[in-house]
């Protein structure tokens, strides 16, 4: 009997429109409360839906979707897509009102200089001592960006620097306890949401992706690596001397060739590290701690690594960052530019920025000078003289305009709905990014996964959501009308067992949810 897996994904979406953000967020949730069958949580604007997922406004003021608990990467991608379909439909209703237009983006970083990053957090249930995870998992997290990177630009660079994974610029350490500041490659949060003794690995170094294959591979390979660590069959000898430095090196290398120092032994490329994990996984295919979909993942994993080794541009219709790299290379060529010429100009801008603000080297200060049109030309002359930069003001201005154009393209790539660049390319039939088993998305908009507490949660909300007053969190569902509770602390629960609330519990629940006395 194969081991069950459980995984989930939380995605933060950037919101933009011509009405105030607070109004747009409130209207989005008002539409959701009106149009979607749901159970509310203890917080305002926080809904559990009949497909088992959760839609809420998160700290920082953005909509966030959490998938239900899924048992395979195919199921996970299906519910991410179902969630995005739900959001797109809500946007259509909002934008019909003509009060204003609102858009949502799968964005990972902002390009305004504000330093914002939108998270895409992965969860994996496991039974390993959490202290064993970082050393064994970090080399995977550092190197998987060769297929799981969203692609884009380094948001903290003053020029134009392509990155396989823009969120890497916002990571500051190998291991962290924080999720909003000092983010780490490995996050130590361990809120199991299970009464069975498992732990929940919570990763925040990943990115929101458009390619189904990239999203599926990331979930599948990471699940297998976690299972190998649990079974003590993970590869040895791939610890890195400086994981964060290695991740930044890999993110800046679209050729996927650069090597970084290992903790011991010869230097390693991202592909070499991934090969080690893949070979170890292939040796575990018959093991009971591996899920029954491990074969599919290893087959696709091997195929993608082979194509990356041959020529990453072969994946320009399949994975996020190679798609973007191909599109942006084309934009450069149309202007008679190359990545090399862009790189030289970006290097000059970095030098000028350092000269301008040697004490703080803050991006904001740099942007302020450049946007002050009257003084910018003069400031640039002074700076370029100081740094012996051969770039004239006119060339700089054209470069910065092109930079804005690329950033615009980058943000619009992941826009939800028919206007998004990725969606347009997909509808045009020029992409080949499908992943094994990812189908039934339309059904997943209303139906929960087939097993586990996600099914019980979703079925109950569908059955009672219109007639009973329901409250929910990941481990409980309360029927306030019937004064009873469904205990869902076992994520693999298969039957719904209602329990009547005692008078004491009822008082406590009433207080918790601040319900009206008339209930």
């Amino acid at each position: 009997v194969k081991s069950p897996c459980l995984l989930g994904l939380e995605t933060e979406y950037a919101i933009f429109g011509d009405r105030p953000r607070g109004n747009a967020l409130a209207e989005l949730m008002r539409q959701a409360e009106f149009r979607l069958r749901h159970a509310t949580s203890a917080r305002r604007r926080d809904l559990f839906l009949q497909n088992g997922s959760r839609l809420y406004l998160d700290t920082g003021g953005h909509p966030e979707l959490a998938t239900p608990e899924c048992t395979s990467p195919s199921e996970l991608v299906r519910y991410v897509l179902a969630g995005e379909s739900i959001l797109s439909e809500l946007l259509q209703f909002m934008n019909r009102s003509r009060i204003g237009s609102t858009r949502l983006y799968r964005a990972n970083v902002d390009y305004s200089g504000a330093g914002t990053s939108w998270g895409c957090h992965e969860s994996y249930l496991h039974r390993t001592d959490p202290s064993r995870l970082p050393d064994s998992l970090i080399p995977h997290l550092v190197s998987r960006i060769v297929y799981a990177g969203a692609g884009g630009f380094d948001p903290l660079a003053p020029g134009i620097e392509f990155s396989l994974s823009p969120r890497v610029a916002h990571l500051q350490r190998a291991i962290s306890t924080d999720s909003t500041y000092n983010r780490g490659i490995f996050h130590t949060k361990n809120e199991p949401l299970s009464s069975r003794g498992e732990h929940r690995l919570h990763l925040l170094c990943g990115e929101s992706l458009c390619s189904h294959l990239a999203s599926w591979l990331r979930a599948g390979t990471t699940s297998l690596v976690v299972a190998m660590i649990e079974g003590r069959r993970h590869p040895r000898g791939i610890a890195l001397k400086d994981p964060l430095g290695a991740m930044k090196t890999f993110a800046a290398d679209p050729d996927c060739r650069r090597e970084v120092p290992a903790a011991s032994g010869p230097p390693l490329s991202a592909l070499a590290i991934q090969r080690k994990y893949l070979e170890a996984a292939e040796a575990c295919l018959e093991e009971s701690f591996f899920p029954d979909w491990a074969d599919d993942v290893c087959r696709e994993w091997r195929a993608v690594l082979a194509r990356l080794e041959s020529d990453p541009s072969e994946l320009a219709t399949s994975l996020d960052w190679p798609m973007k790299r191909a599109l942006y290379t084309r934009r450069l060529e149309l202007r008679g530019l190359t990545w090399e010429s862009i790189s030289r100009t970006s290097g000059l801008l970095s030098a000028a920025r350092r000269a301008m603000d040697p004490l703080t080297d803050r991006f904001k200060a740099w942007e302020t000078v450049l946007r002050c049109q009257d003084g910018a030309s003069f400031a640039w002359q002074r700076l370029s003289s100081h740094t012996r930069c051969p770039l004239g003001w006119d060339e700089l201005e054209a470069f910065l305009q092109f930079r804005l154009e690329l950033f615009e393209t980058e943000i619009r790539f992941g826009e939800l709905g028919p206007d998004g660049l990725f969606t347009q390319l997909d509808l045009a039939g020029v992409l080949s990014h499908s992943a094994p088993g990812v189908s039934g998305v339309a059904r997943a908009v209303s139906d929960p996964p087939a097993t586990g507490r996600a099914k019980i949660r979703g079925d109950t909300i569908r059955e009672l959501g219109a007639t009973a007053e329901l409250r929910c969190d990941w481990m409980h569902l309360w029927d306030l009308t019937g004064r009873r509770v469904l205990e869902l602390s076992d994520p693999f629960a298969s039957t719904a067992s209602w329990r009547t609330l005692s008078e004491c519990e009822w008082e406590s629940i009433r207080g918790r949810f601040d319900i009206l006395a008339s209930l």
């Binding site: 858009r103 504000a114 804005l404 980058e410």
Partner: peptide, 30 residues
């Protein structure tokens, strides 16, 4: 793919009328 990409990008950039969303979407993340 590249031709389709050009068409889509040009369409998006012309819609924006010079007001780029790319450098104004900034708040709300974490």
């Amino acid at each position: 793919m590249l031709e389709a990409g050009d068409r889509a990008i040009n369409r998006v950039l012309s819609q924006d009328n010079g007001t780029f969303v790319g450098t104004t979407v900034q708040s709300g993340g974490q």
